[in-house]
Each structure stands twice: as C-alpha cells, then as structure tokens.
Design a protein around this nucleic acid. Sequence first.
DNA 1: ATAACTGAACTGTACGGCACAGTACAGTTG
DNA 2: CAACTGTACTGTGCCGTACAGTTCAGTTAT
Lengths: 215, 215
Amino acid sequence: MNAQPAAPKPAPGGARAARKRQAVVRAARDLFLREGFGVGMDAIAAEAGVSKVTVYNHFGSKEALFTAVVAGALDEPLHQGPEGPDLSRLADAEDLRAALTDAGHAWARAVRADDEGRALRTLVATELHRFPELGRAWRAHGPAGHHPAVADALRTLADRGRLEIPDLEVAVLQLYSLLVFPQMVFEQYGTELDEDLSERLVTDGVEMFLRRYAA
Amino acid sequence: MNAQPAAPKPAPGGARAARKRQAVVRAARDLFLREGFGVGMDAIAAEAGVSKVTVYNHFGSKEALFTAVVAGALDEPLHQGPEGPDLSRLADAEDLRAALTDAGHAWARAVRADDEGRALRTLVATELHRFPELGRAWRAHGPAGHHPAVADALRTLADRGRLEIPDLEVAVLQLYSLLVFPQMVFEQYGTELDEDLSERLVTDGVEMFLRRYAA
DNA sequence: ATAACTGAACTGTACGGCACAGTACAGTTG
DNA sequence: CAACTGTACTGTGCCGTACAGTTCAGTTAT
C-alpha cells in the first residue's frame, strides 16, 4: 500500500543518472536562453545527447524543466556578481578614485561580457507572467541583490571619514546608475557602447560621484 | 498580362477596410504585448471582432502582422517621449535646478506609467533575433532617440555660460543615468521603486549633476 | 430620389498540414 | 535491476487556405 497514493514520479538516482541529468540541464539552459520557452523538447533531448524519455523521467514536464533550469541559473553565484572581490578591497583602498575606477571598469566589463546574463534577464522578464514562481529568485538577481555589499563598503568609507553620505540608499543607487546602468540599458537595446565612450563614462562617473560625496 | 507575375497580395482599400484594419492592428498590438508572439491568430481575430480571413487579407502572414504592428508601435511618437515639451523650456529656465527637477520627475512618471513601453521593450528584446528587421526602429526607440534634444538643451545652456561641460556626450548620458535609468532598470525587474525613494533620487541626482557641471 | 445592380470586402466553417508535448513498448546498457 | 535508447504513436493546437454565402458602398437606370 503506497502511503502517498498520488506518487507523482520518482526522480532517478545514481551515478549515470546524475551525469545525464546534468547534460539535460546544460542543454536546456543553453537552448532556453537562446531560443526562449518555445524550444521543443526533442531539440533539448538531442542537444543533450539523450533520449526524450530520459528527460521526462528526470523532469516530469516541460514547465517543470523550465522552472528548475531557470531558477537554478538565477541562483548560481556566477550571475549574482563575478565582481565581488573588488568590494572588499574598495573600503581599504588608499587611492579611492583609482579603486572606484577599477571597480567601475570591472563592472562594465562584467556586464558587457555577460551574454548569458542578458539572455536570462529578457527570458525571465517575458515569461514571468506565465511562471510567477520565479519572482523570488528573479528579484534577488536584480540590482537589489548586490545592494548590501556595496552599501557596506560605502558605509565603512563614510565611517572612516573619507566620504560624507547623507542618504546611503540614494548614494548606492547613484553609484550603480553612473557605472553599470548605462551598460545594462544599452545592452538591452542591442547597441554596443563603444570602448572609448564606456571608458569616459566610468572615469567621469567616478569624478562626479567623488565631487558629490568626498569629505 | 500582369507585369508582375509574382503579385503577392493586394491589400484591401476603402473606408470599411481601413476600419477593420485598424481594429486588427489594435487587437494584435494589445495581445502581442500581453501574451507575446505565441498568441494565436484566431485569438487576435476574435479580439478584433473580425474574421481570420480578413486578417490574412490585410497582412499576409503572422510574421508580417507582427512586424507591422510592432514597428508601428515603435514609431508612434507617444513612445518616443511624451516629455518633449519640458526640454524647450529647460534651456530658458531661470531656476535651473527647479527646471531639471521638474523634468526628472516628469521622466520618472512617464517611465513608470508607461506599461506598454515596458511590454514593448521586453517583447522586442526577446523576438529581435527572429525579426532582425525591427533593429532600426528598435534602436531609434532607445535612449539614443531622445539623445539629440537633450544634447541641444545642454549645449545651449553651456553656450550661455550657465553650465560648463567638457564632454557633452558623457553629460547627456549621465543625466539619463541619474534621472531615468534607475526607473527603467527596476521596472524591468518588476520591482516598483517606491514613491519616496524615487523623489529622493531625482532631487539628489539633480544636485549631483549641478555640482559637477554648474559654472 | 429611389430602386436595382455590381463588385469588393467580410463572415463562418471546415479542412490540410505540420510541429510539438507526452506516452507506450520492446530492446539495450551498466 | 534500474536506468537509458529508439521508434512509433496519440492528441492537440495552430498557421494558412478553400469555399459558399452575406454585407456594404457606390453607380447606374428609371
């Protein structure tokens, strides 16, 4: 007698199973990001080098596969921010201007190089109304996710008397606005911000920020 | 003898035809924006109160309908910027800070209220690889579209000695970065920027801009 | 002017073809 | 023995078209 009469599906377990499952996840993520939710399951199975039945043995339906894969991609720390290390150095930097400029360039490069990030953003933005469950991970992936780390760095800088920040929340957003948002917005419009302009934006953005908040 | 043996389809002309056509366009735009390209032609025809054949008599295929409707929506001046008028006043304003703040609030409100604009952005961003023809209108709809007007306003202000702007292109982008981009980015992530924070962002953004560029 | 005529545009339904989600099953691999 | 494969199958949904009948706008005839 099954204690759970509505036993949906037992997910396969084992060494091979794990390998196949990972192959499916990778293929599904790539294709979903490139083609959107409209991609066929046959294509995913083929890309993964796997039978379609195997896909259905691991994930019970297309929607389950989609949410699992996308939620997983959103939670990967890679997309949360490969620019973490710079922040710890920022609070202790001697030359604050140089440190900020370096951080800005790192951010700009990260945003520009992150093709998967852009695809992920547009994909979730379009399918969000069909998969509301993704909302949580989605908002965590947004700018509010990086928020605390930058806020900490700025706060310690203010505590040490190197900056004078009346409204911390605003200052954090302004830093983002000057250094990363232009990259993100233009990237969404497919217009590549050329190297030179990007350079000028970062250095001048740092200048602007320091003129406002330097003690 | 038809001089054009490959006569594709003559689009219907006349008073009634124009009405029906407009009904189709409206319905298609609404449904495409709400549901994406996946919406069925039957649904569009039903929403327009029109037979499906009529749709195919006007636009020959689903893709043609899509490109026509979306390109039309992109070209509508409404989405190009309902904030035009403020710019002409900006150059002549006595109280520059107040004028900039007003303009910022107007922009913020416009971006926030423009649900169709957001839907349009995500829709085109997702389907752009399948309809490359939209690229032109798409980029014109982006921030580079408003660009010239703002650049003119800032240039005249600089010519009159009220601002000191070494790099006009950067200054324009910074103004956008501080006043509009935060709204756009958060809006894309579904996170509503609350009223108070938005207010502080605008006033403080203007402060920052003026401290950098005021003569 | 009113009635009859005319042709283009529109309607409703039904259908062909195709792609795709999900399943069944018999056989294979580790 | 559990997981995987390959193929073939069902069912469904949707694009695009065919066809037979109806509405509409304008022109001509009376």
